[in-house]
Each structure stands twice: as structure tokens, then as C-alpha cells.
Amino acid sequence: MNSDSDLQIAGDILEVPHLLQAPREHPATVAEFVGLARSLADDRSQWEHLVRYDATTRWYHRLRTGPGYEVWLLSWVPGQGSGLHDHGRSSGVLTVLDGTLTERTERGKRVLAAGAQRVFAPGYAHEVVNDALEPAVSLHVYFPGLTEMPMHSESLGGAAEASAVACTPVGAQGPAGTVGA
């Protein structure tokens, strides 16, 4: 009779080098992009000194790029929001580093405190807003890199009408009129 208990491995499987995958220099899977965002979030020395706050518009800074992805750092003062948008053909990971952000979708709203992460697929429409009384900072990983951010003109739950917005060139930083959330 064959069963799961009939299978046994003799010896140390880690001693068989050809069975181990070499570590990748750059992430390639959703789990690896989530891990990249988490490791950057945990290492404040990589981003904390870069954060700026702008009372007139969201501030952003491209923190890192790699083959097929980019990482953005954004700050949000109370009341700032992204507007309802999607990320074109890009998937992404949103990680709240400091403060609290509110994400609104057609399914409702979700409050995201520091440490919260959201993973989204291409075409996922949402609005991110700082509804709190304190500033917030977030990290955004886009794969492939963000090339457009279609803005939606309808209210959540209504008929969608989108207009594409081109994104800022590599190495850019400044007010975030075109960098998503």
C-alpha cells in the first residue's frame, strides 16, 4: 500500500546543492516583491532620511529600479489623496511605512496602519487618502514599472470612465501628480 507515510528522505536534503535554488539578485514573483517591500520597510535607514512633506501636493521619490520593476516612496499630509485610479498594466505592492492611510474601492474602505500591505493586480481601481490627523509615508512597488496611471472620473460603484496619465521619468522626485498609490 502506498501512502504519504511511505516516503522518507535519508540524509540532509540541504547537502544536495543541485536541489537548491540560487538566490536571485532581483525579485521575480509576487511573493518576492512583497518580500522586497517588507525588507525596505523594515530598514528605515534606506528611506527615512529621504522623506519630505509638501502641503500643496503629495511628494514622491523613486527609491529603486530593477529589471521590470520600480519602487516609489510617497508622503501624505492630512487630507491628501490619490484620486480614483488604476495602474494600467502594472501589478503592485502598497506598504504603509508610517501613519495611517485609507484605501477606497468599489467594495468599501479599508484603514491601513503602519505595516499594512496590499497587493493588487493590473486594472485594480482604488483611491488612497490620508484621512488621519498625522502625516503618512508609504512604499509602492510596481511590476512591471509604472508607465501609466489611468484616473477614473466616476464615484466608486458607478460606471467607470478613465483617462490615462503618463508617469514621471526615471530618477524623478517631486509632487506626485502622476505616481500612483
Rank of each mutant, 00 (worst) to 15 (best):
L63N: 00
R58E: 01
V119M: 13
L36F: 08
A132W: 03
T105E: 03
R24F: 03
D54H: 08
G81E: 09
A121V: 14
P122Q: 11
G123E: 08
H87F: 01
V111A: 04
T95V: 08
A31I: 04
T102Y: 08
T100M: 09
G88T: 06
G92R: 08
A116N: 12
V77C: 13
T65I: 06
V119T: 15
W47K: 00
L133K: 10
P27R: 09
Q46D: 01
A121S: 14
R107A: 15
P122V: 14
H85M: 06
V51Q: 00
H49S: 15
W72R: 06
T102F: 07
G81N: 00
E32R: 00
A31Y: 04
R64N: 02
V16N: 11
L50W: 01
W72L: 04
L40M: 07
H18M: 12
L74Y: 05
L133A: 13
V93S: 02
G66V: 07
G92P: 00
V128C: 12
G79Q: 06
G81A: 08
D131H: 11
G99Y: 06
F120K: 10
R44D: 01
T95A: 12
R52C: 10
P122F: 13
Q80I: 05
H87G: 05
A22F: 00
L7Y: 14
K109C: 12
Y60L: 07
T65P: 03
G108M: 06
Q21D: 15
T105I: 09
I13L: 12
I9P: 09
I9E: 13
D86K: 12
P135Y: 04
A113V: 09
L94N: 10
A55S: 15
Q8A: 11
E103T: 05
L36M: 08
A114S: 15
E25A: 12
V77K: 13
S45N: 02
G88S: 14
E134A: 11
L36T: 03
L36K: 01
G11Y: 01
D98P: 03
L14W: 09
L101P: 02
E32H: 02
W59C: 00
S91I: 03
P135K: 13
P27C: 10
S39F: 04
L97Y: 00
A28W: 05
Q46R: 07
E48H: 13
T57S: 10
T29C: 07
G123Y: 03
L14M: 14
S91L: 02
